[in-house]
Computed example of a mutant assay.
Amino acid sequence: LIVVNMFLTGFDATTLNTLWVDKNLKMHGLIQAFSRTNRILNSIKTYGNIVCFRRLQPRMESAIALFGDRDASSIVLVRTFKEYYYGCRDDDGKPVRGYIDMIAELQEKYPASEHQIIGEKNQKNFIMLFGAVLRMRNLLSCFDEFVGKEGISERDMQDYLSIYEDLRQNWPPKGPEGEKTDITDDVVFEVELVKQIEVNIDYILMLVKQYHDSNCEDKEILVTIQKAVDSSPTLRSKKKLIEAFIEDVNDSDGNDIIGDWNDFVFEKREEELEDIIKAEKLKPEATRNFLENAFQQGEIKTAGTDIDSMMPPVSRFTKNNKREEKKMGIIDRLKAF
C-alpha cells in the first residue's frame, strides 16, 4: 500500500510489520506514522520495523523527547545486531547474554542427540533456556546479518523442538502419587514461536516424493520425516495419518504426491466421519453441514441447537443429565475430528 498522508495516521492494524518511509516526517506526524507498525500482536510480533530513506533519527529523538521522555530512545529502539548476537551491557552496566552464549549453553548442557532430559529441574531449565533461544531468534530474524549465523543445524533444531514439544504435552510432571509438582509456576512455553518456525505439510510431501523415487529404500529420509513431524505441534496430531500415507505410497506411481495425499486424507476423513455418525447415531446430513461450517470457522460451536438437531431422538423418560452427558461426548469426538 503506497500512500502520501491518509494511512499514516488514524488507523490500527496490529498485523502491520514494516513501514517504509520516504518523507520528512516530524513531531506528532512522525510519532503517529511510526506507531502504525509498533502494535504488539503476539509473542512473534513484539515490535515493528521502520525502513527510512531519509535521515530521520534526529527528528525521531526530538519527537520522542517531546511526547515521551528525553531518555526514552533506548526503550523505544531495539539494540544493534551485534549486541543481541554477542551480548552487551544494559543501561545499569549489567551484562546481557548474547544469542551465541545461549546456543553454546544449550548444546553443552542438552546435546540434541540425547532426545530426552531426565529430572524435573533439568527439564525446567531446558524449557526456560530454549524459550529464551526462541525469543532471541525471533528478534534476530529482523536483521539481515542473522542469515547463515543461526549457530545450529536444521536437524538439531528439529530435535530440540521435538524435545520441547514432548515436555509441553507432558507438563507439569506428576509425582509418585500422581499429583502435580510445585516447580512449574513460572514455566511458560513459547507455542507461537514454535509454530512460526515449524515445517508444513508441503515439506513433508517433498520428502515422501524423494522416498518414493528411491524405490522406498532410503531409510534416512524416513528419519528426516519423523524428526520434522515430531518437531511440529501441528503435524504431530497427524503423525499416524502421515505414517499410513507413507506405507500407502508404495502402491502409487509417485507422479502426483500432493494429489495422492489429498485423496488419501479425504478417504480417511470420510471413513472416520462415518464411524462417528454410526457410533453416535447422528443424522448424517445435519452432521456434515455442521462440520463443514466448523472447518470454515475453525472451531466447534457448542452454543445454540445445532448439536441437539444432529442427535437422535431421546425417550421422554431419559434423564436430562444423561442426554447432556451424551451431548458432551459427541462434542469431544467432533472436536478431536
Rank of each mutant, 00 (worst) to 15 (best):
H212F: 10
L222E: 06
K23F: 07
R55C: 08
L235I: 06
G93P: 03
D91M: 11
G93M: 09
K209Y: 06
P95A: 08
R333D: 08
V96H: 01
K238W: 04
L56R: 07
R89G: 00
V78C: 14
G87C: 08
L106K: 04
E220V: 15
Q57M: 15
A279Y: 11
K26L: 06
K327N: 02
K319E: 08
T302L: 05
W20M: 11
D275Q: 15
D182P: 00
V3C: 12
N250G: 10
N255L: 14
V21H: 04
A33I: 07
S232E: 02
K278E: 13
R135N: 09
D213E: 14
I50L: 15
E274V: 07
K227H: 15
G298N: 03
R36Q: 08
D275L: 15
D308F: 10
P233E: 02
S309I: 09
S62W: 05
G178P: 06
E120L: 10
D101T: 12
R168L: 11
R55D: 15
Q297F: 12
I197Q: 11
I277Q: 02
I117D: 01
E61Y: 12
N215A: 14
F7A: 08
N293V: 11
K121E: 10
T234H: 03
W20L: 15
L129C: 05
K124I: 15
A228Y: 03
L241Y: 01
I204D: 00
G304E: 02
A13N: 07
R168N: 08
P95H: 08
Q210T: 01
K278M: 10
A286T: 07
P172V: 12
G87N: 03
E325G: 07
I221W: 05
D248G: 00
K23M: 11
K227G: 09
K268A: 06
I163T: 11
K227L: 15
V199W: 01
I242D: 02
L139F: 11
P95L: 06
F337T: 02
V51F: 12
E217M: 14
K219H: 09
L106R: 03
R55W: 10
L129I: 07
S62I: 04
M6P: 01
Y84M: 03
K174Q: 12
E145N: 11
V188R: 08
I2W: 07
L282C: 06
L30M: 13
E270V: 12
V265R: 09
F7L: 14
K195M: 13
V133N: 02
N42K: 10
